[in-house]
């Protein structure tokens, strides 16, 4: 799965970037459905579900990094808030799970409002401020035990329902649901990137004054990206919570949820839409199947090495490598 997922990208013919993107996306989608058709083992499906959860998180991280120009070391905050909010809504207020999940996302957005003051900080200061937020949320989830169950965690909250005869709490159903969410948010990302907002955000990174002087409110646009990124991360946190059916602060707000999306997105190429998704699947499977069997404790050392090597050798990730090996049409060449 892992190597076949990256193949069509390499083999796709040169063409306009839109056609190329659609072809790529459709190809990947078909590939993504293969495990269902061939009846992959529950273990394999479970791995793929987790990989797709990570893909959604990596997509949300890359959206903030690529469009918002911000590096986040604290996406665990949004992931955890989404998870807890959705689980608590479903358990305590009997909110239907499929409604609780997007509301969980909204709660993550709400929590990101507290980070707005951090937006006026430059690079490393923003990165570390958001890391501080993630820690604060983890500690809050532990301390507010009347609400969250404290360190012992939450165990009894509803799992995913059955919709149109498809039991979403079964592995196959969960897989389809998570995949659909990844596709949906990837499309949202594409639409934003191609919009005027996306164009303006692309300009802000290197020409802030020139962009603001024609009327672009850079802070507001970046704010929208932070809110959206938090929402997406929250939704995947909520999905994950209802799929595994168990939450505790050290898990939901684990540094893993901050670290893995960075590795996945940088590995796949965080300046593209597909990069983080492909990167997440490859990295997650590599970590779980290869790294863990080689080094049971401390397997993250291999991920660290992968990340360091990627930044040094191919800072644009897999997609950058693909672009280098298979250059696009002449038109794009002339522009480059």
């Amino acid at each position: 799965m892992s190597h076949s997922a990256s193949h069509p990208a390499a083999g796709s013919p040169a063409g306009s970037s839109t056609a190329r993107g659609i072809a790529l996306g459709a190809g990947l989608l078909v590939l993504a459905l293969v495990p269902l058709m061939v009846g992959a083992s529950p273990y394999m499906l479970g791995l793929l579900i987790s990989a797709l959860i990570l893909a959604g998180l990596a997509l949300s991280w890359a959206l903030l990094g690529n469009l918002g120009g911000m590096v986040s070391f604290g996406h665990a905050a949004f992931f955890g808030v989404g998870a807890y909010a959705s689980a608590l809504l479903a358990a305590r207020l009997n909110v239907p799970v499929l409604l609780a999940i997007p509301i969980g996302g909204l709660f993550a957005t709400l929590s990101s409002l507290a980070m707005l003051p951090a937006l006026r900080l430059s690079g490393p200061y923003f990165a570390l401020a958001i890391l501080a937020y993630a820690q604060i949320f983890r500690i809050l989830a532990t301390e507010l035990d009347w609400l969250t169950g404290g360190a012992a965690g939450l165990q009894r909250f509803p799992s995913l329902p059955t919709v149109f005869g498809l039991d979403l709490s079964e592995r196959a159903g969960s897989y389809v649901l998570v995949l659909a969410c990844v596709v949906l948010f990837a499309l949202v990302y594409v639409v934003i990137r191609r919009s005027h907002v996306g164009t303006a955000l692309r300009a802000i990174a290197e020409s802030e004054d020139a962009t603001r002087v024609v009327g672009v409110n850079a802070t507001v646009l970046k704010t929208w990206m932070l809110l959206l990124s938090a929402f997406i991360a929250g939704v995947f946190g909520a999905l994950n919570a209802h799929i595994i059916g168990f939450l505790e602060p050290d898990y939901a707000f684990s540094g893993i949820w901050s670290v893995m999306p960075i590795i996945a997105a940088v590995f796949g190429g965080y300046r593209t839409v597909l990069g983080p998704i492909v990167g997440a699947v490859v990295i997650y499977l590599f970590d779980q199947v290869v790294a863990k069997s080689l080094i049971p404790v401390g397997h993250q050392i291999l991920l660290g090495i992968v990340l360091a090597v990627m930044v040094l050798v191919a800072p644009n990730g897999l997609s950058g490598l693909v672009a280098r090996l298979f250059p696009r049409s002449e038109k794009h060449h002339a522009e480059a």
């Binding site: 692309r202 300009a203 990174a205 290197e206 020409s207 004054d209 020139a210 962009t211 002087v213 522009e335």
Partner: peptide, 8 residues
């Protein structure tokens, strides 16, 4: 001149 970079 300050064109917006990365844009046509």
């Amino acid at each position: 001149p300050q064109p917006m970079h990365h844009l046509s």
